[in-house]
Write a protein that binds this DNA or RNA. Structure first.
Lengths: 338, 338
DNA sequence: CTGAAAGCGCTTACAG
DNA sequence: CTGAAAGCGCTTACAG
């Protein structure tokens, strides 16, 4: 049916070992024989069988990406960054959603190991220590886009969530907000913890601060809506919401709009992540932008570098998040005209 | 290192052939021997090597999903539907973005073939006849979520875009719109063509209709913005926009808002697809909802059924799109109170 | 019911 | 510079 290396060898009148050498440009091959072999390859339209190759070299040029939910724009752009790079290197990317996967997660990793997946990228999210350990034991190289407590990771890519969040809260203070609430994300996720901590550090000594200005938003639109309702109920006079992520901010915006509370005049809103959606809402949302596509790309880049050279180029990559001010916090500042 | 079938055989004091039989629950195996083997497997923590297995059975329990852009919410929820199902069947899903892939597309398919990918799902988008043919020649089974001109596809999943679009335009007419523009999508995509045709059929005999009420929007937010600007320029009196997809509608909304044109009072807006975003904008967008997650799931389901049984359960699956009326077209109807 | 042997399509020392 | 042979870890007829 499809040609094999044996067919090529026969046609070129050489051994399969020699064909293999030219295929992998490895070891010496006479110029003449090389020509003959290349012709045969062309003639037969031969393409090496990657599965057979994988069986002997134990590599598949395949990496897996675990995300909590590909449906979240943050993760889909991350995925795109990773996939684009992987593809450019001849790698193939396996998508794994692990939200509420429960026991499946272990199985998934086992399956990947059985398939000789070369490496795994683990995006931020509930990678708890146990899971991490399990994956670690599988010996599959991984890069992690989140801090995993009490565990040495070979390669992490970390965005400075703390500083990013601090910038956001400071900004809100600077524009004159006097009662800033925070919708926090799942506390098993380190980024959510950092953002919360930055908020607390920034406001704990301010006169108006009270812990009831905190509400959980589960990093989702719905969660953001619930949290906002609760916050407004407890603090009708709040004048700003620092949302744990953009989805929360969008939820907040929605509730505020429904209640007829004007943004930013009455309540300013700031998000985190910098997903594209924040540019299309009305008003557009001020947010702390992460280099999301870049993160995905870097993750793939470092992982593939490891796969090909057996060492990580960088052990820890730190990136900054930058505050992008938009309409949702244009409260007191007015520089429309000069 | 890791245990192989040989280790299991040795420990259980049988041949590897017998181990293979219990592994695949295929062929007769004595109860006693089976027990012994199962114990050995447990003891050694043995897990079969899928790559070796693939080499002989020529199947990998892997499917690929081609999408133009995973970053578009429509495709990410489609991907989730496909991945969830694939995973539930022990399959693994490879993500392929093919937007502007150019020559890469062929290579990608070749690569997948070399890797023994069992099947491909091709989402709507620029699957032009040439590409389709190339893929077809690869003999990899595929399900296509789009109409491919002049080509027999083994399994297609089609949403009735024509009827869906018709419902949308009729709705706009019914609420009293007298000058309805349409932002159309890339005409190499059949769904875009169908939506355009439905619009034309619905309005071509109405007195106000003129072809300049059409503008291309490229199915993107930016494209929707451009188109809207152009339409407003040419027709300051237009009172409704039927956008080719939700991204276009979001773009339209944005431009209208910036220009201070109220939606829906002055201009009604209707989208297509039913991505989640349409629920979070202000106003919420009326749209023609496709069963997106379901489409992804059905695609995976039919493809995997084919892979496992060598025939497609259904050759053609037709689904309906339903109009969901929301704020952006609440122009004349008012049923807040009874 | 079970085993020996061939084979899937490659790569990799090892000789020469 | 090139080839014969072993091996990667399975499955699958074929005997028995």
């Amino acid at each position: 049916m499809t040609a094999t290396i044996r067919d090529v060898a026969k046609l070129a009148e050489v051994s399969i070992a020699t064909v293999s050498r030219v295929l992998n440009s490895k070891g010496y091959v006479g110029l003449e024989t090389k020509k003959k072999i290349e012709e045969a390859i062309k003639l037969l339209n031969y393409e090496p069988n990657e599965v057979a190759r994988s069986l002997t070299v134990k590599k598949t040029k395949t990496v897996a990406l675990f995300v909590p939910d590909i449906t979240n724009p943050f993760f889909s752009t991350l995925a795109k960054g990773a996939e684009d790079y992987a593809n450019s290197k001849g790698f193939t990317l396996i998508l794994c959603n692990y939200e509420k996967m429960g026991g499946r997660k272990k199985l998934y990793v086992d399956l990947l190991k059985q398939k000789y997946v070369d490496g795994i990228i683990f995006a931020a999210g509930a990678l708890n220590p146990e899971d991490a350990l399990k994956i670690r034991q599988s010996k599959i190289p991984m890069v992690v886009l989140d801090r995993v407590p009490e565990m040495e990771i070979e390669c992490e890519i970390l965005v400075d969530n703390y500083e990013g969040a601090k910038k956001a809260v400071k900004h809100l203070v600077e524009i004159g907000c006097k009662k800033i609430a925070h919708i926090y994300g799942p506390q098993e996720i380190s980024t959510a913890r950092q953002r919360l901590r930055a908020y607390e550090d920034a406001v704990k000594n301010l006169p108006w601060y009270t812990p009831s200005l905190l509400a959980p938003g589960n990093f989702s639109i719905e969660g953001g809506m619930e949290a906002t309702k609760k916050l407004l109920h407890d603090h009708p006079d709040l004048d700003a919401i620092f949302a744990g992520n953009d989805m929360n901010a969008i939820g907040a915006l929605k509730v505020l709009y429904r209640k007829g509370i004007r943004v930013p005049e009455k309540v300013a809103v700031c998000g985190f992540d910098g997903i594209k959606l924040t540019e299309i809402t009305t008003p557009e949302i001020t947010t702390v932008v992460q280099p999301t596509y870049e993160i995905g790309k870097l993750a793939a880049e470092n992982l593939i570098h490891y796969i090909e050279h057996s060492f990580f180029r960088e052990k820890l990559i730190k990136l900054d998040a930058t505050l992008v001010v938009r309409e949702s916090t244009q409260k007191l500042e007015r520089n429309d005209e000069t």
